[in-house]
Design a protein around this nucleic acid. Structure first.
Lengths: 238, 238
DNA sequence: CCTACCGATCGGTAGG
DNA sequence: CCTACCGATCGGTAGG
């Protein structure tokens, strides 16, 4: 629910017509910045602007202004606007998959593997809201090859969750009608986090991760070896 | 997971330069269509194109071509491109709220109210994928007043689910750590359906609605009066 | 419902 | 890293 950002909607009707218009003030220094940091500053500005205004509504001049240079000067550091988007979106999927590999590798208990996978999924979507938000909204803004790359990685990522759930079902640890719907619902509720989470709100990232871990175990129909349902406090049964 | 559409990416490099270029063929009749249907045909075309290409990448000429007229002729039927988007997005939220009111009014059992609310939510997102998809992606493309209208209705809609869950908790029918996270997770997993569902796939709309109803009851920690967990077949307990 | 057209925007290149 | 600029696009209006 709710949108990620609200700043910067609509082309900035800034100081048009009427007397002396300087250029818009540049944010501090235009030079003197280490060349190595310049690229990452550009990427970060692009990410923020893509999230706030959308890829198509963000101009190279906007991105340049955010790092203190003019639009055309960006082409010394990046080859195109599209490249900036593709890097964000492919990098996001690579990170999610890498985090998932770590999450499942620390334990053999399928319940714990699912919990850790979901916690990693939630942590990423809370800590990297903008990446996740842009990654989920701008798929159609990619060219075909990059779109295929991102969708292929998404498919791989989903399969990891689905096969984990199938394994749990085979072991008798999970009980679901459809592993696919279970994995979709678990992943989709995590994706939603990127839309409404903000630091300093009702929940910390840790609390969020833990609660969604519980919810995922409920969705999976997980019961520990003694037969209790997931997410129940030991003493709360009727 | 996955994007809603893939047609029509990128401005259509269609027959530029070189010999005889007629205009692009118009899709059958340009006139002879009942005036009453014209507006809804335009809305439908706009919806399809907004979903496939994004609002900003869809031109009035695209929409016109889809209904067999030229871009400027659309202004006989609509006042602006923006109006087309606003109608879709506000109408979507109005329908979801109306469906929810019906869903909760048929029973007093809070479990059944939640089930029916979720089923209605899922049915809408499966049957009106494009509306839901556009409604969730183009919030930032609205002007401020319309964006406020949509977000206000979203907030109302979420509150209906949250208060239902809180009521269930108070009655001892549900058990959750946070009603807000429960409602967000339930709504977000439904929103996800609009991204990946397609008719003729593995599940029918009815199957989907039922399974997500079960999942929502699990998330809510629902147990029937006899103490069994939601979504379990009566004989499946260990 | 159409053509002609205005005014504005924008990604990217030239050439310092 | 900048200015000047090209080529193309687009929402909306004029005036039939």
């Amino acid at each position: 629910m709710s949108s990620a950002q609200s700043e910067g909607r609509g082309r900035s009707h800034s100081g048009s017509r009427g007397g002396s218009y300087e250029r818009p003030h540049r944010p501090a220094r235009a030079e003197g910045v280490p060349v190595a940091d310049r690229r990452s500053a550009i990427r970060q500005a692009a990410l923020r602007l893509f999230a706030a205004q959308g890829y198509r509504s963000t101009t190279m001049a906007d991105i340049g202004a955010a790092v203190g240079i003019r639009g055309p000067s960006l082409y010394k550091h990046v080859t195109s606007k599209h490249e900036l988007l593709a890097e964000i979106m492919i990098g996001t999927m690579e990170q999610l998959i890498a985090d998932n590999i770590v999450a499942v590798s620390g334990t053999d208990d399928v319940r714990e593997q699912l919990r850790r996978s979901v916690e990693a999924h939630i942590r990423y979507h809370a800590r990297h809201r903008l990446e996740a938000f842009v990654g989920n909204r701008e798929i159609g803004s990619l060219d075909q090859p990059d779109q295929d790359r991102v969708l292929g990685r998404r498919s791989d990522y989903e399969r990891r969750f689905r096969e984990l759930i199938e394994q749990g079902v085979a072991e008798g640890a999970f009980h679901v009608q459809s592993a696919r719907i279970a994995s979709y619902s678990i992943l989709d509720m995590g994706i939603g986090v990127a839309s409404w989470f903000h630091e300093g709100g009702e929940f910390s990232v840790d609390q969020l991760a833990y609660q969604y871990g519980d919810i995922a175990l409920r969705i999976a129909g997980a019961r520990p070896h003694d037969g209790r349902s997931a997410g129940e406090e030991p003493g709360s049964l009727p």
